[in-house]
Design a protein around this nucleic acid. Structure first.
Lengths: 130, 130
DNA sequence: CAGCATCCACTACGATACTG
DNA sequence: CAGTATCGTAGTGGATGCTG
């Protein structure tokens, strides 16, 4: 993911892409964004539905992250000008691509749940001797 | 990743595992942790080497995240009681499992770089008409 | 219902300085 | 060299209230 070496003509492009990549990574590699992606899955959900699916998330964080995801073209936002208003969110193709990797992370979590739990107790306890 | 329904006998265990999973997810789904995992890869690195590999990270964030990763059994920390001290970090099996998913995320970033970039400019600009 | 704005508590983070 | 501690700031995120 890093492009050092060479200051040639095309190097600037590489550096630009690199910094963009890091920016995207920073946007996307946060708890709420990933949980939203995961919650959406292949469904289409309304704002309020998402709010209950991703439990623990506040109104504010949800809007904020949805805007960010929309800006990056990962979710599509469809507004129905009815009353009361109805807004639906769906993953785009890019979003579904990311979702696949989040799925992998969830699987990983399940797989190593026990390993991690015991590692934690070892670490947290007075660890008498070696 | 969610276990609703039923309040039966084994339900408590499921809820415990669930909250643990969410805890792990929160720990791990953050920018620095993932970048450290990625930087380590299959190598063994010293603290100072990691510091330069994960550029932009502060001394403090690095120690903090390394402790967290160690606590969760994702990295192994080996201390050589020499002078000056030498501390090496390596991914454990669990860590390498996670690394695979981070790799996938990086690949994804590269794949959709252009898509995302254009989505951004569409979003950021005055968007004249539809 | 969805979203924006405001306020405020809290913590995350960087800078700095001190130990083994 | 690696780590801990302290401190100040800037940002995060929750609660609340107002709009279409």
């Amino acid at each position: 993911m890093v492009s050092k070496q060479f200051d040639g003509p095309a190097a600037a492009d590489l550096r630009r892409a690199d910094s963009l990549a890091r920016e995207i990574f920073s946007d996307v590699a946060n708890k709420w964004a990933l949980l939203i992606i995961e919650a959406l899955g292949d469904r289409t959900l309304r704002f309020s539905e998402l709010r209950t699916q991703v439990q623990g998330i506040s109104h504010k964080m949800l809007t904020q992250n949805l805007r960010m995801l929309e800006r990056n073209g990962l979710v599509e936002r469809r507004v129905y000008p009815t009353v009361p208003p109805r807004v639906e969110y769906t993953l785009t193709e890019a979003g579904r691509g990311l979702q696949a990797t989040v799925d992998a992370m969830c699987d990983w979590t399940q797989r190593f749940l026990n390993h991690i739990e015991s590692a934690r107790t070892h670490f947290d306890n007075p660890e008498r001797l070696s």
